[in-house]
Design a binder for these strands. Structure first.
Lengths: 342, 342
DNA sequence: CTGAAAGCGCTTACAG
DNA sequence: CTGAAAGCGCTTACAG
């Protein structure tokens, strides 16, 4: 039994031939050591946990998570680590689940997503001393490693591009204000606008849903001096905005340019396609998993920066209306009346 | 130690006071029995597995899985059962993962989704004798219980409705032909059309992606006697169709009625909203989980039928063109030229 | 390099 | 009802 263990776990103490023979037999029999027994003697669960605190309906149309999970998975399954998934409604339940998993020793570590600026989960993670990676900005005062992308740079790139197209009235429809990166992006937006000497903050906060995206857009487009460009914090709201523009007879991109904060098939689905901030979410997941495994294996807690999102330009952005000539300029597109009953 | 175990697991053999005292102390300490130890002595993993064989990108915009998983989760976490998730590319890898999980005793059972008409996973499940629930039609010759919905009835309802609206040239853009339910729906469609004495099968097969949905729609709309109504096998392709119609200057629903095979926020996102076959996917997940737990607990393998999807009528369906009067009839909507560069 | 043994943290009959 | 003990299936020092 001892030799089998050594052989299968690649430890010294068995002759090469014996090792090979053992491995062959295990393969023939389809035998693998029981995780329960391995966990008990090794005090490792061989699983990590992901708790998502979102409603199932918005999760469904939010392409982020499936790609992130697929990325995590790619890395974890290569190392024979299981991914335990739980979907909950709020942080209170998320915390309960975290405590339970850790108490039961179900997981060796966790991935924390959707960080709030003020996040109740963080103190619990520290209290529990569970290895955890923040998928998002690192948190000062905690030793928790983070895997993050430069949201600010991405927002600045979007603003710069719109300004270069001649836009001056640029608004932003932000996501959940409690989220840490929402605040970072808002600040970056304000700074970028100020840097161009453009009018002060024009920001609407939402909960990321399609409904609030539509409402925010209606409000913005109903103004006298309505914006000529709007940056949305995700793709869902940007698609909603496209519909509202159509409904209100505002041409995209002729009269209104739209930038989506996430890139996904949704952005290609619609018409015109949405210019979006694009980045490799699957790689993000994979890197997060790798960082977590390193942390669990006692390696130092190292934070990691992903490449910033880049602007994927499609049909929803064009030169600002004032600068557009009727002929010869970049095609501003045509809006037309709403194409159906609502 | 023995008493603690009895107390916490609600078994007889401890006085009520002792039991309560033990429970209180456990709660105070936040102590929970280690799953590894419980698994080893109880030969139960206290987890079930779900292996999804799809590419991450299409998964992202496919709202089905997140809702299904949320439904599974709701039931599982209530019973303190973990959900182990794996995302793979194909059945070969899925089978490998199943074998591994079962050999390692990581799971007590599995949920099988996206059943193929000819499915390599089934014989492996039978060989392994792993408790498994088919999320889809039951498979003759196997004892595997299934949780399913009446796809045929839903398709028939959609056809009947379109026929009642006066449509006679109705086409169907089907999903992956290897999938079991794709074939069932195709047959149901053909039968329904025949029952109305309408022209023979007009079916295009696709892989469920937006691209193939768009291509299929272009082909259909390029015909001389193009269909006046098309039923799509999911929501993604129906949205793609909406764009193609716009691109080709075909009014929806004035000249073309569209029915989406799944209902999700996507169907509300677009303009006009898509009439869709709607059902409660989260409940489906929850019932599937419950059936699996019953199976694992040695109960008989009972299949379960969910209510059939019902037609959620939105703006994308209307009376067939021939029957439409310019004024006074149901508003056929207006198509207009494409609203942007492509 | 091999074999015999303890121990991981529970559950569960089995005596008292 | 309580206490002492075996056993689940591994891993890992520890003798030989």
């Amino acid at each position: 039994m001892g030799a089998v263990s050594y052989a299968l776990n690649g430890r010294p103490g068995v002759s090469p031939e014996t090792r090979q023979r053992i491995i062959d037999i295990a393969n023939d029999l389809g035998w693998r050591p029981s995780v329960a027994a391995r966990s008990l003697s090794g005090s490792r669960a061989h699983s990590v946990g992901l708790i998502i605190a979102r409603s199932a309906d918005t999760l469904g149309v939010e392409p982020f998570f499936m790609r992130f999970i697929a990325g995590l998975e790619r890395e974890l399954s290569a190392q024979r680590i299981g991914l335990l998934l739980q979907i909950v409604e709020d942080h209170r339940t998320a915390i309960e689940a975290m405590r339970l998993w850790w108490a039961e020793r179900r997981v060796d570590g966790m991935v924390v997503t959707d960080l709030w600026a003020q996040d109740d989960r963080i103190p619990v993670i520290e209290e529990l001393r569970v290895p955890a990676i923040l998928a998002g900005r690192d948190r000062a005062g905690t030793g928790l490693p983070a895997v993050w992308t430069d949201d600010e740079a991405a927002v600045v790139a979007a603003v710069d591009y719109l300004v270069a197209l001649g836009h001056r009235r640029i608004a932003r429809v932000a996501g959940l204000p409690v989220l840490n990166h929402t605040q970072l992006r808002i600040e970056a937006f304000n700074r970028a606008m100020a840097a161009h000497g453009l009018p002060g903050p024009d920001i609407v906060e939402t909960d990321y849903t399609w409904e609030e995206g539509a409402r925010a857009t209606r409000a913005l487009l109903s103004r006298r001096d309505r914006p000529t460009a709007v940056i949305f914090d995700n793709d869902l709201m940007a698609v909603a905005a496209l519909n509202v523009a159509q409904e209100m007879g505002v041409a995209v991109p002729g009269e209104l340019s739209i930038v989506a904060g996430d890139d996904s098939q949704l952005c290609v689905l619609v018409h015109p396609g949405l210019t979006a901030l694009s980045w490799d979410i699957q790689a993000y997941g994979a890197h997060t998993a790798r960082a977590l495994l390193e942390l669990i294996d006692g390696g130092r807690a190292t934070s990691l920066q992903e490449p910033a999102a880049t602007l994927m330009v499609r049909g929803s952005t064009a030169a600002a209306p004032r600068l557009t000539r009727r002929r010869g300029g970049p095609d501003p597109g045509r809006g037309g009346p709403p194409s159906g009953p609502r």
